[in-house]
Design a binder for these strands. Structure first.
Length: 433
RNA sequence: UCCUCGGUAGCUCAAUGGUAGAGCAUUCGGCUGUUAACCGAAGGGUUGCAGGUUCGAGUCCUGCCCGAGGAGCCA
């Protein structure tokens, strides 16, 4: 008997097939049983009528518990009464494992609190909503890679273990490294700059770790970041690259993941509005907007979470903010030649209050200036000698950015917390499962 | 780290300082088209932990633990 995937059930109408999966729910009406079977590709309703199968088969199905694993064989039939439009007239069922009723599947088809669901994250992933999010996450990652691959970028991954004191240790996770200490990477960017001088256009994609004790809807201690770096690029080039990337990713999800967005109840029209060009404003303009909206922000300080929310609610598509004061940005940011107090940097804020999804800019290309900045920031020069080498040997202007995958997933899926955007979130008070 | 809120049945929640309850889940029974099915019945409790006040504490007080929301922190 051919085994089919439920998502292809419509192509097998009238055929005798086997589906294999888990019992999603079982409804019963006298001598009729309606097992809902889920196989990871979809959910299909089966029908077992008492007259059509042996008494043993009928009882076997009737005794099935939620999430028990099974193979069901029968004929596919179109029926408007079935969720999905096709159902399986079951003739035989092979139960792989019946979950005993004295220890039933914990996540019932009713409401649950977030603590319980997070404790059972390994099982929660099976729910329709979580599978939809996983699907969109996959599509976003695939779209990012396609975007860069199709534009001649070379994937050069950065290390996860990094040496001591690369950027100050307060927000780094420290781990034992034989007889030494190492730190989990906070960004692949410095290594990207080395790679850009080797291959011109590069990107890295991997996990990133931040030991800040942040407890908000937009922070994880372990998250995934995709970071392009382009030799000879200036701020405008990198702004355009970021805008094209985001527009491409949104378009790809709208193209291929409509069903998942619908499952999530996401208003797709909000995403359809995200076509180029995106608005670009400077930090100066952003501060003025915030002050008219009641924010207490003063020129010179970075935006708080509330500021980002207010700002991103002013536009119906992602907004690009450039030229922040250098003092709130990292030591390697290139200063604006016109106004040296400003950095040639860029943040992109997602709309609907989602806030920062991208941060980046032009890097300092000049050896003397970079060295001065390292000293001003009291960073250990020895640890940065290799980084200074990039300015000793054929330095060129270059720029790049990092995009936080989970924040993009949260925005595109319309979620109110990033914890649902990654299979197993790591947060301040969450290390399990 | 700070502020606020919470912890009662497997889950989601209710209970004026006075007999701990409902829905779902589980078990049993009924129903030949169910749609988080429905109807009937049953089992299920160290009220987060420790102390205190009181004739009497799920409820009030103190400390602790755990979690949530937010702030700060955060390229």
């Amino acid at each position: 008997m051919p085994v089919i995937e439920i998502r292809q059930a419509s192509e097998h109408a009238g055929e005798e097939v086997t589906v294999q999966g888990w019992l999603y729910n079982l409804r019963e009406s006298g001598k009729l049983l309606f097992p809902l079977i889920r196989d990871g590709t979809g959910i299909m309703q089966g029908v077992v009528s008492k007259g059509a199968v042996s008494p043993e088969t009928f009882e076997r199905v009737r005794d099935l518990t939620q999430e028990s694993s099974l193979r069901a064989t029968g004929r596919v039939r179109a029926d408007a009464r079935a969720p999905g439009g096709f159902e399986l007239d079951i003739s035989e069922v092979d139960v792989i494992q019946r979950i005993p009723p004295d220890r039933p599947y914990p996540i019932t088809p009713k409401e649950h609190g977030i603590e319980f669901l997070m404790d059972h994250r390994h099982l929660w992933l099976r729910s329709s909503r979580q599978r939809a999010i996983l699907g969109v996450r996959h599509e976003i990652i695939k779209a990012c890679r396609d975007f860069f691959d199709d534009r001649g970028f070379t994937l050069v991954d950065a290390p996860i273990f990094t040496p001591a004191a690369c950027e100050g240790t307060t927000t780094l996770f420290e781990v034992k490294y034989f007889d030494d200490k190492a730190y989990l990477t906070q960004s692949g960017q410095l290594y990207n700059e080395a790679a850009a001088a080797a291959v011109g256009k590069t990107y890295c994609f991997g996990p990133t770790f931040r030991a800040e004790k942040s407890k908000t809807r937009r922070h994880l201690t372990e998250f995934w970041m995709i970071e392009p770096e382009v030799a000879f690029a200036h701020l405008d080039d990198i702004c355009a690259l970021a805008e094209e990337l985001v527009a491409f990713v949104v378009g790809r999800v709208l193209d291929r993941r409509r069903a998942e967005l619908k499952t999530l109840g996401r208003d797709a029209s909000k995403l359809e509005a995200c076509i180029l060009p995106f608005p670009r404003i400077t930090y100066d303009e952003a501060v003025k907007i915030l002050q008219t909206k009641g924010s207490g922000i003063q020129w010179g300080s970075d935006f708080g979470g509330t500021d980002e929310t207010i700002l991103s609610q002013q536009f119906n598509k992602p907004v690009v903010v450039t030229h922040y004061p250098g003092q709130v940005k990292a030591f390697y940011m290139a200063p604006d030649p016109q106004r040296p107090e400003l950095a040639l940097c860029v943040d992109m804020l997602a709309p609907e209050g989602y806030g920062e999804i991208i941060g980046g800019g032009e890097r300092i290309a000049d050896y003397d200036l970079l060295l001065r900045r390292i000293e001003e920031n009291r960073l250990p020069r020895e640890a940065f000698e290799w980084y200074l080498d990039l300015r000793r040997y054929g330095t060129v202007p270059h720029a790049g950015f990092g995009m936080g995958i989970e924040r993009v997933v949260a925005w595109i899926c319309g979620l109110d917390h990033v914890r649902e955007t990654i299979p197993f979130p790591r947060m301040l008070y969450r290390l399990k499962p």
